[in-house]
Write a protein that binds this DNA or RNA. Structure first.
Ligand SMILES: [Mn+2]
Ligand SMILES: [Mn+2]
Ligand SMILES: [Zn+2]
Ligand SMILES: [Zn+2]
Lengths: 161, 161
DNA sequence: TCCAGATCTTGACTCAGTCCAGAATCTGAC
DNA sequence: GTCAGATTCTGGACTGAGTCAAGATCTGGA
């Protein structure tokens, strides 16, 4: 391995990761990457907060731009639960899915029982070139279930909003 | 079957459907239901247009209110493609999924190869009470594929926006 | 070091959707 | 047929998430 082969020298170095993907290294992008790594399923707003805490100041636009670049390069993943702002994570390439609580909106990672690439082979792809199967499970987390345990199983589930 | 058993007398009658779900029958709600039935994956704006064409006038609020009631009662389903307004359909209960084109945003129905309730049994539900598995396939429709056919398989896929 | 081009900042702006409140209208139980 | 309560209308304000545009600043290759 030569000294000029940078592709595997610093596997966990964000700056090297950016360079390897032909992206300029900036303080903003590094802060965004660290924010996404630090807090799984963070929202853009959450990234703004964390990045500002780290480097003092960053514009909302720069955060959106950075997130967009990182998503495009496959360094992070964007998930978009219905009715809530987009969230970002650095677990990419493992085709994992998400479980969202209807009560509090919490998001947790989950693996599919079907296998590594569940449902990616749809019954009929209609000529589409499918590159991703996004699976979101909806339900209620243990905490939210406890809050509304009326001992009886009732079909009406009240919405939090 | 007595004459007062209304639950299965008019399986395709929107008014009866509403009554069976304890919802007042109004011209607006009927028009909204027909709009959603007539055009798969219609947006709220689309419903406004179609309903106005049918009954002459309806307020935007009434459309949103009606859609909300129908979704709550499980008579229609709301889906929310990334970056586009919510869409509605009357195919409910069959656990079908959606295929969204990254290029033009078109949405088509799709059945899962896995079966009737794919992935609903997650490997580990983490104590969550799962009631729905939402699956969205991402890809490019035949038209959009044709537009960017550069004969070579390249990893960079430009976004339409 | 220099500089073209990439990136960031700032502030206005869009869009979809919600919320509000009073008045008018409609529905369905009786 | 009556009438209480549910629904709708008008129309405007408002929110949250995200985008746009123009000018300032920074990055990295030469
Ligand atoms: Mn995840
Ligand atoms: Mn559908
Ligand atoms: Zn919860
Ligand atoms: Zn397309």
């Amino acid at each position: 391995m030569s000294a000029h082969d940078t592709s595997h020298q610093h596997p966990h170095d964000p700056a090297a990761l950016l360079r390897d993907h032909g992206v300029q290294v900036t303080a903003q992008r590094l802060a965004v990457m660290r924010a996404v790594s630090a807090q799984p399923h963070v929202s853009a707003d959450g990234v703004v907060e964390m990045a500002r805490a780290e480097i003092g100041a960053i514009s909302r636009q720069a955060v959106y731009d950075s997130l967009g670049v990182l998503v495009d390069k496959g360094l992070i993943r964007r998930i978009q639960p219905v009715g809530s702002p987009a969230r970002f994570e650095d677990r990419v390439g493992d085709n994992h899915h998400h479980l969202v609580c209807r009560g509090c909106g919490s998001v947790v990672d989950i693996d599919c029982a079907v296998g590594a690439m569940p449902c990616l082979t749809a019954a009929d792809d209609l000529g589409y070139e499918i590159d991703e199967a996004e699976v979101v499970y909806w339900g209620r987390c243990p905490e939210c279930r406890a809050l509304t345990t009326t001992t009886t199983t009732e079909s009406t589930l009240e919405r939090s909003h």
